[in-house]
């Protein structure tokens, strides 16, 4: 009963905060409305008994959205996102896209054959196999990627390599700018001096 009430409040809160993102006129407020929506969404994860994942969502979303706020303010065209601005554009198409995505996701919720009784058995099997007590985080992990762990690890490495590559490609200063054409400069020539006294 109490769980149902908490879930209801958070579900409603997440939707209302999500709508607020498009109703406010400031980049900062939109960011924090989106953050609030994510935090509301973290509570149902806690209700599922996935305490580690739930708190991790809070931690990651706060950090991520704050960095995002800086970038969103920075990349807005007119005076740098500092001024009041409209949060919607391309209205008609975006309404269509939003409705289509909602219908798809809602259909997914209704059409997915949720393993009601199987889950409990599987959880028990997974946890006894790992020799620990019934830890829902472990069970979820086994369920999500048990047989595909190798694939997931490879994907993780590929993602990381992509991030490094993108940063390397995006920066306009490589090692030749920093250490000279023959890479012989002892200390790098950087616009901002770092803390290591190089």
């Amino acid at each position: 009963m109490l769980e149902g009430v908490i879930f209801g409040i958070c579900a409603l809160g997440a939707v209302v905060a999500g709508i607020t993102v498009f109703r406010v006129d400031s980049m900062a407020r939109a960011t924090f409305a989106l953050l609030a929506s994510f935090l509301f969404a973290a509570v149902p994860i806690l209700l599922l008994g996935l305490s580690y994942l739930g708190i991790l969502v809070v931690l990651m979303m706060v950090m991520e959205m704050l960095i995002m706020a800086v970038f969103m303010v920075m990349y807005m065209m007119n005076p740098a996102g500092l001024m009041p601005m409209k949060m919607v554009h391309n209205n008609k198409a975006s309404i269509g896209i939003a409705v289509a995505v909602f219908v798809m996701l809602a259909a997914g919720v209704l059409l997915t054959p949720w393993p009601a009784a199987v889950t409990a058995a599987k959880t028990a099997a997974a946890t006894t196999a790992m020799g620990t007590d019934a830890d829902p985080t472990l069970a979820l992990g086994m369920d999500l990627m048990g047989p595909h762990m190798l694939v997931m690890i490879v994907i993780g490495m590929v993602l990381f390599a992509t991030m490094v590559a993108v940063v390397v490609l995006a920066t306009d200063r490589g090692r030749y700018e920093r250490f000279g054409d023959d890479l012989r400069r002892r200390s790098p020539d950087d616009p901002v001096r770092g803390g290591l006294g190089r």
Binding site: A28, F32, L35, S51, Y52, I55, L56, V58, L59, V62, M63, M65, L66, A69
Partner: peptide, 26 residues
């Protein structure tokens, strides 16, 4: 005494990022 107390502490202390940025922006 949460089973994930260390993560909880980290999550709460990161709220300072949000707080300080809100104050500075506001």
């Amino acid at each position: 005494d949460l089973s994930v107390g260390v993560v909880w502490f980290n999550a709460m202390e990161v709220l300072a990022w949000a707080a300080v940025w809100m104050v500075g922006w506001g």
